[in-house]
């Protein structure tokens, strides 16, 4: 490793650190709801403190999420890779679960808002 390598390493680590802080800015704020976005548009939202399972069926395919103890996991997906089911649960520290083949982002949202339901999406309260 030469001197410039170390400089590069330091720059990259700094960039990662800054991005980490930026993407986690809203940490600690009270979470209002869990939102499902398809193609960047919100198609559904659920209260984060209500345990439930919900289907998200879109033109791209089927997904099912489970909200339990204020954290969310993807439990079902008929996408070809299934990576979304392997992703960590998202909870109090925000974050998102992404199903790339289905253009779907499940995210924690930190502002207040009313629950919105769209055709093709139905929540099953448990």
């Amino acid at each position: 490793m030469k001197k410039k390598d170390w400089i590069l390493l330091a720059c990259l680590l700094t960039a990662a650190g800054i991005l980490y802080v930026l993407t986690g800015v809203n940490k600690g704020q009270s979470l209002a709801y869990v939102a499902a976005e398809v193609d960047g548009e919100e198609v559904a939202r659920w209260p984060v403190d209500q345990d439930t399972e919900a289907d998200v069926d879109t033109e791209y395919g089927h997904n099912r999420i489970r909200i339990r103890n204020r954290s969310v996991v993807m439990v079902e997906a008929d996408c070809p890779d299934g990576y979304c089911k392997e992703q960590h649960a998202i909870g109090a520290d925000g974050g998102s679960i992404i199903c790339l083949p289905h253009h779907l982002v499940i995210a924690m949202v930190k502002e207040n808002g009313e629950k919105k339901t769209v055709e093709g999406v139905d929540a099953v309260a448990q």
Partner: peptide, 22 residues
């Protein structure tokens, strides 16, 4: 991926992916 999803939510992974790339 961000273009496909039309969402910036995926940049949440960027710090981890930078470290992994290093």
């Amino acid at each position: 991926a961000a273009l496909v999803l039309r969402s910036v939510g995926i940049f949440y992974y960027l710090p981890v992916l930078i470290i992994a790339g290093i």
